[in-house]
Amino acid sequence: MTTDLLLALFTFALVSSVTPGPNNIMLMTSGVNFGFRRTIPHMLGIEFGFGILLLAVGVGLGAVIHAVPGLQLVMKVASAAYLLWLAWKIAFSKGSSEADAGVSKPITFLQAALFQWVNPKAWAMALVAMGAYVSGDSPLLSVAVITAAFLLVGIPTASIWTGFGIGLRQFLADPRRLRIFNVAMGLALVATLWPMLR
């Protein structure tokens, strides 16, 4: 991979990872409700799940999904159902004080990893990255480089969104404001379904 192509890949990985989407909305909400330390499994789950998704798309899963129209519909329905469930969970999250009492819990490593398989933005990012940056001369090496590029920018960008949430914690210490924020984030997560349903 040439230096220019590698720079373009890292730019795409950074921009697509740091822009709003389901993962980043959930990370910000988790930062508000649970703090940085309790959001780390969520961040690591995103990275693990998305890394596996990238590798799978790179070795041909994306082509199978495009070739089988019924499978695309199943993926869309599963994505919509899971996003709606997560939006409900976010909208009615109880916040950090009640979370410490066991009333509400942050998203786990496994939940975050599995979510990548039904996350429409993750699929779009993986398909575009593999379509644009895989080299015909060394396809497996370029799939590994693409995956590494996304993993290198993933934790810093996830930390930024979690940090945004932490920055809002004091303002959202008022239970009424926290409730409004959580409902707004739940609705924002539902809004991420729009591009998939068009």
Rank of each mutant, 00 (worst) to 15 (best):
F48N: 07
V74S: 04
L86R: 12
F34P: 00
N24Q: 11
V59C: 03
V15P: 04
L53G: 04
L27S: 10
A91L: 00
G49A: 11
I107P: 05
L55Y: 06
T108C: 03
L54Q: 15
F36G: 05
E47S: 15
W117D: 01
G35R: 02
L27W: 13
T108G: 10
H42S: 11
F36T: 15
Y82Q: 00
G45T: 11
H66V: 12
S79I: 10
H66R: 15
I65M: 04
A63W: 00
S16Q: 11
L86Q: 09
G35F: 01
R37Q: 09
A87D: 03
F36E: 02
I25Q: 10
S17Q: 13
S104L: 03
K94P: 00
A91N: 05
H42P: 07
I25T: 11
N119L: 06
L9R: 04
G45V: 15
S96Q: 15
H42A: 05
L73G: 00
L44I: 12
L61I: 06
K94D: 06
F48Q: 13
F115H: 03
G95N: 13
M43P: 08
A91S: 12
R37L: 02
M43W: 09
K105L: 07
G49H: 13
H42L: 13
V18M: 08
T39G: 03
A101G: 13
L44S: 10
T39A: 15
L44A: 07
S16N: 09
I46V: 15
Y82K: 07
R38E: 07
L27R: 12
G49Y: 14
A87K: 10
N24L: 07
A113S: 15
M28V: 02
K76W: 05
V32M: 00
I107E: 07
S104I: 08
G35S: 01
K94Y: 05
L55R: 05
G58P: 13
V18G: 02
F12K: 12
G62N: 03
A91E: 08
L53S: 04
V74Q: 01
L44Y: 09
K94M: 02
I65L: 01
K89R: 14
F50H: 14
G31E: 06
S30N: 08
W85V: 14
A91H: 09
M43F: 05
A78L: 12
F92W: 15
P22T: 08
L114T: 12
K121G: 02
A101V: 10
D100S: 05
S96K: 15
G49V: 14
T108L: 11
A113C: 13
S30F: 07
